[in-house]
């Protein structure tokens, strides 16, 4: 039960973070469309790092 609540909290946090990353990346791309490739790569890396953190927390709590 408690770990389900924990998992929910993790997903909320991770979702918020991913939204931030994606949103800011979109803004960046809209501002400088010629840098889209670089922004995308950086975005994927940061998203992957965040994902690692979230999965780590989920698995530790399981």
């Amino acid at each position: 039960m408690y770990n389900l609540i924990g998992a929910g909290l993790i997903v909320i946090g991770a979702g918020f973070g991913l939204g931030q990353i994606g949103g800011k990346a979109m803004e960046g791309i809209a501002r400088q469309p010629e840098a889209a490739g670089k922004i995308q790569t950086a975005m994927i890396i940061v998203a992957a790092l965040l994902e690692g953190l979230a999965f780590g927390a989920l698995i530790l709590g399981k």
Partner: peptide, 11 residues
């Protein structure tokens, strides 16, 4: 390394 292994496994 933990994030590397957990990410792939979990996905």
């Amino acid at each position: 390394p933990f994030s590397l292994l957990v990410r792939l496994f979990a996905n």
